[in-house]
Write a protein that binds this DNA or RNA. Sequence first.
DNA 1: TATTGTTATACTCTATAACTATA
DNA 2: TATAGTTATAGAGTATAACAATA
Lengths: 157, 157
Amino acid sequence: MAAHDRDGPADQRGAVLDLVLELALLVEEDMTAGLARAGLTKARAHLLFEVAQRGPATQQVLAAALGVSPRNVTGLVDGMTATGFVTREPHPRDRRATLVTLTAHGRAVAERLVAGRGEFADALLAGLPAARLAELADGLGEVVGRMRALVAQEGAS
Amino acid sequence: MAAHDRDGPADQRGAVLDLVLELALLVEEDMTAGLARAGLTKARAHLLFEVAQRGPATQQVLAAALGVSPRNVTGLVDGMTATGFVTREPHPRDRRATLVTLTAHGRAVAERLVAGRGEFADALLAGLPAARLAELADGLGEVVGRMRALVAQEGAS
DNA sequence: TATTGTTATACTCTATAACTATA
DNA sequence: TATAGTTATAGAGTATAACAATA
C-alpha cells in the first residue's frame, strides 16, 4: 500500500490513459461496424458528410477538405458512384472539373447517420445525472484541448 | 433560453459525445503518427506488442489474438521481417509451424513505446488535481463500460 | 483427415509522378 | 503556364479459397 500511495498520481493518470485508449478503440470499432452496415467505410463516410454539408463540390475541394491526395478522391468517388451514393456532374463553367453530388440514397444515408448520433449519445450517456455529465464534459474538454495542442505541435515539427 | 433549457440534457449528452468522438480521432492520429516515427503501423505494432507479451508465437496464435485472418498475419510478418522487427524461427516440435520472434530491435522498440505511455499520460493529464482525475476515471469508466456492452451486443447479433 | 502457412485473387485506403484536357 | 482529374505504379491492411507440407 505504501508503494501504491507513493505512485498514486502516476497510477491514476495511467488508469485514465488506459480508459481513454480503450474508449478510442471501442468508438472506432463501433463506428466502423455501423458504417459498414450502411455500405460505407470511414473514408467514404467522411466524403459523404463533406458533400452533405457543402453541397456539390469538385474533387480538388474535397481532397483539401479531407486532407488526402486528389488521386485518392478519384478512388473514393469511383467506389461511391458504383455503390450509388454520389454522381459526377459536369461543372457548369469549368469543363475540366466535376461536381461530386449526392444521390437520393446518399442524402438519405447521410441524414440517417446524423440522426443516429442521438441514439448513440443516449446509449452511452442516458441516465447519467447532469452533474456527472458536467464533470465529464469538463474533464474531457481539458484532455481534448491538450490532445489538440499535442497533435498541432507534432504536425508543425 | 426556454428551448435551450428544455433540451438541456440532450444537448449536454451531445456535447459530451462530440468530445468523445474528437478525442478518439485525435488519439488515433497521434498514435498513428508516433508509430510511423518508429517505423510501424497500427497493425504491425499490435502484432509487436502481442509477441512482446507472449514470447515467440505461431502465426495461428497471433491471428487469433489479433482477430485477423492467418493470411493477414503472413503479410504482417513479411513486412516486419523485412523491416527488422521480427524473425521466423522453426518450431521445435512442429515442422509446419514457425515461431514469430522479436529481434533485438523489435524488443527495444516495444519497450520504448511502452515507456512512452508515461510521457503521453503526463502530456494529457499532468497537473490535474487528484479529485479531477478521479471524476474523469469515474465518468470514463462508466462510458467505457457501456461502450463495451454496445460493441459486444452488436458483435453477437 | 486436420492443421500450418503460403500462393492466388480481390477490395480498400493511401501516396507520388506522369499525362490529358481545359483554363 | 497552371489547374482538374485520370492513368500508372506502389505499399499497406483486409478477406476468402485453394494448395502444399506436415501432424
